[in-house]
Each structure stands twice: as C-alpha cells, then as structure tokens.
Design a protein around this nucleic acid. Sequence first.
RNA 1: GCUCAUAUAGCUCAGUGGUAGAGCACUUGCUUGGUAAGUAAGAGGUCACCGGUUCAAGUCCGGUUAUGAGCUCCA
Length: 647
Amino acid sequence: MTKKITITLPDGSQKQAQAGITGLEIASMIGVGLAKAAIAFEVNGEQRDLSDAVSEDSSISIFTIDSKEGLEIMRHTVAAQVLARAIKNLYPNAKLAIGPTIDDGFYYDFLSDKTVSIDDLPKIEKEMEKIIASNSIINKTIHSKEEAMSAFAAIDEPYKVKIIEDSTQDSNFQIYNQGDTGFIDLCRGPHLPSLEKVGAFKLTKISGAYWKGDSNNEMLTRIYGTAWKNEKELNKYLALLEEAGKRDHRKLAKEMDLFHFQEEAPGMVFWHPKGWSIYLALQNYMRKKQAANGYDEINTPLVVDRKLWEASGHWDKYRENMFITEIDEEHANEKRVNALKPMNCPCHVQVYNHGLKSYRDLPVRLAEFGSCHRYEASGTMHGLMRVRGFTQDDGHIFCTEDQIESETASFISLLSTIYADLGFNSFDIKLSTRPEVRVGSDEVWDKAENALKSAITKLDLPYSIEEGGGAFYGPKLDFVLTDAIGREWQCGTFQADFNLPERLDAEYVGEDGSKHRPVMMHRAILGSFERFLGVLIENYSGKLPLWLAPTQIVFMTVTDEVADYASKLKGRCDALNLRAELDLRNEKIGYKIREHSNAKVPLMAIIGKEEMGSNTVSIRNLSENQTNNYSIEEALTLLVDSSALPS
RNA sequence: GCUCAUAUAGCUCAGUGGUAGAGCACUUGCUUGGUAAGUAAGAGGUCACCGGUUCAAGUCCGGUUAUGAGCUCCA
C-alpha cells in the first residue's frame, strides 16, 4: 500500500524509504548524531521543517547549525518565535509585522503604542532568555487563506492579516505555535524543531522602519539582533564590529585632524590642512589620469539661472533637492531665480554646444571637478559619505550609439586601474536596466543595455543586475565600494543618456552631412571626492600610502643638540616638495614616536647624535614598526621615488 | 523627511534639583633622553540654543538646531 521512494543525498548516494517519511526520520536513517544535530532540511532545493513529510523521489540535504542555511534558520527562529513572542509578552498591544533574517542577524518590525528605546533592549533580551529556557517545541499547522486570515483577525494582528490577504497563494499558509503558550506566528518557515536549539544571540539596535518600506506608510519599531551558534562565535562577531568601528572615517578624521562639520553648514565639509592635502593629492592624480585618457578638463558655473534647469528637466524632477537663490530686487531689474548646480551635466552640454561638432570630433570627453550642492534630507547625512556640498570627478562623453560599447570598455578599464592604485582590488558592479517610467524607444534601450552588458562581459567582470533600476533617461552601471562597517556606497557610475541631448539640443554633423543627436554618457570614477575619501580612509584604516599621506615624514630629535641637523634635513625635503614636519619638542623619543604613530604618519625619522655624527638618518616605518639607517642622499632618493603619484 | 537616542573643557567622558568634575591634550617649570605615554604646577566652561516648572535647573518639562543608529531617498 505504501509507496517506496528514492532519496538522493548531497554526496550522490541514494536511499530507499517509505513515502511520507519526515525530515527527522531521514536524518535518523543517516545517523543518530545527525538526527540530534538536525534543525531543518531541504527537499529539491526547497527548505522544509524536519516534521515535513516527503512523498516523492527527491534530493535531500539535512541542515545543522554548522551550515550557512542552518545558521540562517536559527536566526529566523530567534526573530519570529523568540523576539516576537517576547515583544508580545512585554507589550501586549504590539502588532507584529515581519521578522526576516539579514546578514549576520535578523530584525523584527512591530507597531507599538508605547515608545521602545535602546534602554529597553536588556529587558527584552531577558524575556527572550526566559522563552528559550522553556525549551518549547515548535509545531506548525497548515491552513487555507480564509482560515489563516481569520486566525490572525481573531488575535487582532492586522499586519499578518494584510500579508495573507495580499499573498498570491490561496492555501498552504503555515502557522507556527509553541505548544499551548498561545503564541502563533505566520511564517513560510522553516523553523528549529525546538527552542532548545537556539544558540547565542544579542539585540543590537533599534530604529524606525516604514511598513512595507514605503515612506507614505506608518512607521513601525524595528529591533535588530544577531545570533550565532555559540557564545564564542557571538563574541567574535561583536569584537569584529568593535574593530570596524575604530576604522570609522569620522573617528579617524578627528584623530588625524582632517576636517570638521558644524551647525552653520550642515552637510558641508570644513577641510583642515591635512585633510585638504589628501584631497589635493587625489585630485592631482585624477587630473593626470584623465588627461592621459582623452578627457578635456573644463569648469562651469556654480550658480545658474532657473531657465537652464527648466530646460534640462531638473526644475521639474529634482527641485526639492536643489538649493535655490534669489537675487534681491533692489539690485536687479527683474527678480532672477538661480539654483546652485546639483549636477554638472546641463552645463557640460552648453560647452559641447559651442561650435559645430562633426562626427569626426566624437567622442568628445569633457571632465570637470564639479562642485555640486544637493539639499539632502536631514536624516540622510553621514560623515563624508553623504553630504550636501560635494565635488564630483564628473565627466560626460558625447558619442554615437555605436561608440557606447567601446567607451564603456575603456571607462571600466580606466576605473579598474584607478581603484587598484587606490587600494581597492574588489568592488561590486551593478547594471541597472530600464525602469517602468522612461523616455526613448525600446530599440534604443535594447541597444544601450546590450552595449553596457557586452562591454562588461568582454572584460570578464562579475556584475549583478538591478531590474528596472536605471534612470529614466537610460541604463547605468554602478560601481560600489564597502565601508568599515559593511555599508555599501555607490562611487563610480556610468550612465547612458538619450534624453538630455534632446532637451538641450546637442547635435553633430554626420557623414551624411545632416545633423544627428549624440548619446551622452554621464560618468564618474570616484563619484564624489568626499564620499570616496571617506571610503578610502576607512579602507586604509587611516594609514594612507605615502603619496596620499598628509604628512609623509616627521623628523624628530632625541636631544636639542641635533635640532639644526634635523632642520636642515627637513629643509631638503621641503625643497623636493615632500610633505615633511619637524618635531623638536622637549619630549622623549618614545613619546614622539607614539604621538606621530597615532597620527598615522607613515615615516618617522629619528635624529640623534649617532645620525648627526655619521651624516645619516634613521627612518622608522609605521606599517612595519621597523627602523632602517640611510645616508642622507639615499634617504631623499627613496622618499622622492616612493612618494610619487602612481603612474 | 520619519522613529529612537544623544548634545558638559580642544578630545574621550563622569556628574539622580542645592558652589562645574576626571583622564588625555594645552601653557610654564624641572628633566636632554635612543624607538608607542618622564615629572610638577597652571590655565581652560553662557553645561548646544529658546522657553517653562521650581526658593533653586547641567540635572525635570516643551520647542529648535545639530549629531548618531536605522527607515525612505541618493554620489
């Protein structure tokens, strides 16, 4: 009567079993140890609870906490079964929303009639511990859409009802419970079979989050947490977070005296001498690189009449992000409304439009270190990473549709060498394709998307696709770097634009003697100097390579008697345009070394009687904490060579 | 913009309604020393801003601004 089925395990081996065998029974078949460690399983690529039955021939793999999947299932259970229940216990009026896993942890969203703050987390953790200690068995039942909706309507959980209502499926809704505790939750599962299997967890932060991620909806309370298979792994993760925090560019900037912000100009950087020195070194490097790659540098106005922004479409589509200025009527015949430029593109078209362009001139590559201002929402500012005033390493390539692919390829190759010079050997590439609302024909979009895709494929670079993520005027490639605490920042970008040349009437004379529209490629490699420097500082933990370091070498004396000798050496460096400093203070050498090490000065020259006597210099290297002795000429040659811009 | 939190010396932070504190940094002595903190003294404050409660506010309450974490949005 019962059917036999064949089960294929990940190693390819096969076992016969009765149809209807559960995941737990399969694990037992393989071994007692596995049955004990098992927390869920996978049937033909679909994750299931151990209590689920298998009735067909299937490929099976059993998950334990040691697998990536197992860990994620455990985190999910901690969120949906433990945290959610704790919230309901402590805040009975709370309405549960969703509780998914994220990298390294989980969160749960709920609506609360009481404000919950970070100070409440220990209390919630304690309640969670209590729930886990009960070692409740987790069961589930399967329901039709109507049953599921009425179950959650009965306990007044409107978000759960809404989720079921909006779901496209009409049966098979899984409701998990913990015995007779009265707690139930809707979930696609799977979950741990019992709370006994929960490892070590910690609630980390609390914030608001919009229901369904839509800012028009109400704001829910979100509690974030992390969970690991044991205390040791948890502590390792927490220590890692703490280490990463030390690399935060805002913290390093204070320690290294690079820049500051103040209330009178939120989101605008006050660069200090040392920070500006890094900025300039980077800018000089970029200027050299772009000049060598066919770009002509230009400069365009900061304040531009609203007429141009109306023509470009910014006034209509981007006004809420623009700083608007008005000229006082006393000083003008008519009131003029201007805007600080939020982007450089319309101005670049003005430069392109001066003089008739032939197809022989294309591609025209215009570059500008363009200072832009955008009125960003107050809550979005973040150190150098997100500011209101910033400078892009902007550029626009005016070319024909046929030139898109080769321009893409040469752009990416330039970007790759620049990122490598700056210490970034890995970065993510995202290809954003046509959005719902767009301009231009599907043929042109096909052509543009394919050109970008084909260029990137030929370079054999991995990329991900963001369907519908393109700008309304064209598809784009984004180049994404990651900061100290794992947040991703879009830096480089390469965007095809068929719209602006039309709006601002850019033309070239083709081979056929008639006028044509060029395509305009918007591109940036660093993105903005501000953001890129933020990521750069974090990537190097403040220990910048010699060519970028604000102070490259500091001459520090062991005793007053060698002050003149040290000054002379510093003078030699000045003459060679090296960034050298002199530390003649009445302090011990250990103190000076400590101080300049903390300031991340890459080279420290220790000058004492020995060096003066032998006309040498001892240079201590920050990265290796190692001192070498050089003759003066040797040292200067080495310094000049090793501090040159990468070529 | 939204939610929650924070704002005290240059920096990091303590201060539970009754005279403003510490460590580091700074200044001045002493010390002239050899590879990550010598030593003593001194100076340094409109406790973010505006208002309220109170005999009395850094402390309690309301508002504003900025900052932090996240959400939405973005280089």
